[in-house]
Design a protein around this nucleic acid. Structure first.
Lengths: 356, 356
DNA sequence: TGGCGCTCTCGAAACGATTCGACGGCCCAT
DNA sequence: ATGGGCCGTCGAATCGTTTCGAGAGCGCCA
């Protein structure tokens, strides 16, 4: 309360011991007599001293106890997507158990004047022992570059394996292929697809050859490739500008409201699929009789009831936990290997045979 | 790469200046000749030095540049609720603009052995210049106590005004009262309500007098009181265990599947209201002909279309921004006053006159 | 009784930066 | 020519903690 915060030195003085002994009393490492420790703790309580200042401790130990989580996007958008949230939850739990805090960093701060995107200053200057680029890192990602220049060890989620950091991914391609075969088996031949954004210049609309060239975002590319692996050549590819229901609705309308509509629409996320379902309903199409719809992620969407979305389920929390484990491994000096988690086709009621 | 990280001293030596001059070159505060600064920066680039170490800087300045955000809950639950997410977004934007980072702290870590709940160690030991208890603080909140003992200035969201910290709240009571009058005007007399949790021992089920005694959570209490202010004495009060669609669905069934069902159901959140809508549909009730349904929050729920939920809209992002402003004010040494933000009744298509 | 070893405590040196007061030039004005 | 003001640079102190080596005291055994 008085002039300046009470420090370990004050406590030591009050307890009649040296600063180093007082430090021992708190850290617990090193030999110290029980009654000495008790005396120090009593003095601390007396003075209202609540443990060593983390700043001093950090400086000395060189560790901040903080892992940065870089959201490759604005927070608002990221957090509206349950996918990011569940991954984040697994990550925070794993790190929290080890006493590590999570510092939220939105990698991009939109500048008002220009349309320019500047990396958050936090990337440059915040203290972190390691960082997780949780979503959407790409080759030559500026945030990745900044972190690596700073010497911060990085774990990447869903990025290309070409980045110089361990990656936690899922079998996007295999899962999409399984879904593709599912549709082929049902008899679908005219399949459209609604994709996640292609790059950070998110667009909403049909994809032409030129746009296809610019496909930079790994999950988008892999899920598209998986469909082709199954032997499906989409009659239409529509890019959505975010993994949100509204975006799926808009894209779904574009895919369905055409002269010769597809018999099935594969959306690259469950939220997009939900939007496609709404678009189909708006157009008076019944699902799955008039059109089949499938998603990706395996979210729990109770408001879709009584429909159950056909989807490819990915282990979201496990993904976050895997990232957390990697961070711990990096901090322990190890060099974790990239991981690809398995996914599982989960057929629901929104896919069925095409109408005769 | 070599032995130890390159430091400002190394850069200074390489540039042939003193450490203090080198510091000046980076911090920009204080007089320094242009070519000197250039020489220092060149030396820094040469050595791969990327700016002053935040740990050292923090220790010296006493500021970590980090604001803790205490989620009074497990992350998973909090983040499934768009309300928290939008508030968080406003908060992070506001703080981020000032170069402040946000450290996520889940105030409770469930212990596996017992059912006991222990405060996260981060609350005790993480470096933060200020903290925001974003949701659900209550009197004698242990996390609040820990923070205040540490001398960390705190801002509280949605807590009782009795806590010793500035509070950002909304006019829960007035909004609910307006909604109540709206229903009365339509002619409703038998109104049931589905509430948010009463305390951290979340329950799902009808509320009796004993349970009503335990009502500890401020928004729940105020929204209930507002209804009474309007002159509505609910024929049934059903507590939901979380602000989630599933919970609303369960609670809605309890409220509607009774001998003499209410003509209107007021849910204390939009997600709960969505669940009630689903429950009504499951029971074969048409909305608003057979039963009116209203919510609270003003979320954007596209999947409800073509229905538009009658609700009380609260300024979610503005709430987060207000919290951010308070943090900045606290950091500047001020003593911000508590704020109550306005809400707005927004009638939709889910409420109408009762039948007959 | 003397020596050895063990336990506990202490002092001092980092950790990496900021900041304040002092000082050395230089230019300009008198 | 000389004194005053100003600009730019430097040294040194400081932030609060941890850690390492040294040393003090004590008990036990020979």
């Amino acid at each position: 309360m008085g002039h300046s915060r009470t420090t370990l030195a004050d406590v030591a003085a009050a307890a009649g011991v040296s600063v180093s002994t007082a430090s021992l009393a708190f850290s617990g490492s090193g030999p110290i007599a029980d009654d000495t420790r008790a005396r120090v703790l009593a003095a601390a309580a007396e003075l209202g001293y609540s443990g060593p200042n983390p700043l001093g401790r950090s400086l000395r130990s060189g560790r901040s106890g903080i892992a940065g989580v870089v959201i490759g996007d604005q927070l608002r958008r990221s957090f509206r997507d349950p996918v990011s949230v569940q991954v984040l939850d697994g990550l925070v739990s794993t790190l929290g158990r080890q006493g590590l805090g999570v510092l939220l960093v939105a990698s991009e701060a939109q500048v008002d004047d220009e349309d320019a995107i500047v990396p958050s200053p936090l990337l440059e200057s915040a203290a972190m022992d390691a960082a997780v680029v949780i979503w959407g890192a790409h080759r030559d990602d500026p945030s990745l570059a900044v972190l690596q220049r700073r010497g911060v060890p990085v774990v990447v989620g869903e990025g290309p394996s070409s980045v110089d950091a361990p990656v936690v991914g899922i079998d996007d391609r295999g899962g999409s292929a399984a879904l593709g075969r599912h549709l082929l088996d049902l008899g679908h031949r005219r399949v459209a697809t609604v994709t996640l954004p292609f790059d950070r210049r998110r667009r909403c609309g049909p994809v032409d050859a030129a746009r296809m060239e610019q496909l930079d975002w790994t999950p988008t590319r892999h899920r598209l490739a998986g469909l082709r692996d199954a032997g499906i050549d989409p009659v239409a590819v529509v890019e959505a500008d975010a993994s949100l229901v509204e975006a799926g609705q808009a894209a779904g309308r574009l895919a369905l409201d055409v002269a010769d509509p597809p018999t099935a629409v594969v959306a690259q996320s469950d939220l997009l699929a939900a939007g496609v379902l709404i678009a189909a309903r708006d157009l008076g199409l019944r699902v799955p009789d008039d059109v089949s719809v499938a998603g990706f992620d395996g979210l729990d969407l109770p408001w879709l009831a009584p429909d159950v979305l056909t989807t490819v389920a990915q282990p979201l929390a496990a993904k976050g936990e895997a990232m957390g484990q990697m961070v711990l491994e990096l901090l322990a000096g190890g060099t974790p290997a990239s991981v690809t988690l398995d996914v599982e086709l989960r057929p629901g009621t929104t896919t069925g045979p095409p109408r005769g």
